[in-house]
């Protein structure tokens, strides 16, 4: 059993120190994930708090069929959606590219993709669904199966979602890259 699953059992038994240990281990990545979707540090802090409150109250329902991180990110994913609904926010539409003809974009965005500010700028332009998928893939190094569980959707949907997000990111980053001479 991995260390987080053991902590979850202890939390289910009411062990506060286990909750503190889990919080210390995972609050930063969960916060980063929430912040990437809300773009508001205060709101993100509140939602992180709500996520760990729910972990405390629902730990006994964790059945171990997925990794603990997947379960927790799933809670965070749903809470952000709830928050968006309550706030009446609609996801930005970042229309996927119709024509995939960017043979140069990979090469031109290699340099730009090394600049954190440019990557952040391009991430901000993505819709919530695309940003979530990329964040889970590249920040949390989750497999497409794990991301599908977090987002409660089909594995194929996640693959195409990340494919489109990646294309949009590369197109955006290419704009920062060196000019390509033909």
């Amino acid at each position: 059993m991995d260390q987080y699953a053991q902590l979850m059992r202890q939390i289910a038994d009411g062990d506060r120190s286990a909750l503190a240990a889990l919080y210390r281990a995972l609050e930063k990545p969960v916060y980063r994930f929430i912040l990437s979707r809300l773009n508001d540090p205060h709101e993100s802090s509140d939602l992180l708090h709500d996520v760990f409150i729910e972990i405390w109250r629902s730990a006994s329902r964790f059945e171990g069929r997925s990794k603990v991180q997947t379960w927790i990110f799933g809670i965070a994913y749903r809470k952000v959606i709830d928050r968006h609904r309550k706030a009446g926010r609609t996801s930005l539409t970042d229309t996927p590219p119709e024509v995939i003809d960017d043979t140069d974009s990979a090469e031109t965005c290699i340099v730009a993709s090394q600049d954190a500010a440019q990557v952040r700028h391009c991430m901000d332009g993505l819709s919530d669904e695309h940003r979530s998928a990329i964040a889970l893939a590249f920040w949390e190094d989750m497999s497409y199966r794990e991301i599908a569980k977090v987002c409660d959707t089909a594995e194929g949907t996640i693959k195409t979602r990340i494919f489109h997000a990646k294309k949009l990111l590369m197109r955006c980053l290419s704009a920062f890259g060196p000019e390509v001479t033909s």
Binding site: E27, K28, Y31, R32, L35, P41, S45, L48, H49, C109, S113, Q114, D115, A116, V119, R120, M123, A137, F138, W139, L169, L173
Partner: peptide, 14 residues
């Protein structure tokens, strides 16, 4: 892109 994102530690968690 992945390396840049992972090195970009600008989110100050609570």
């Amino acid at each position: 892109m992945r390396a840049t994102m992972q090195a970009d530690d600008t989110a100050y968690s609570p």
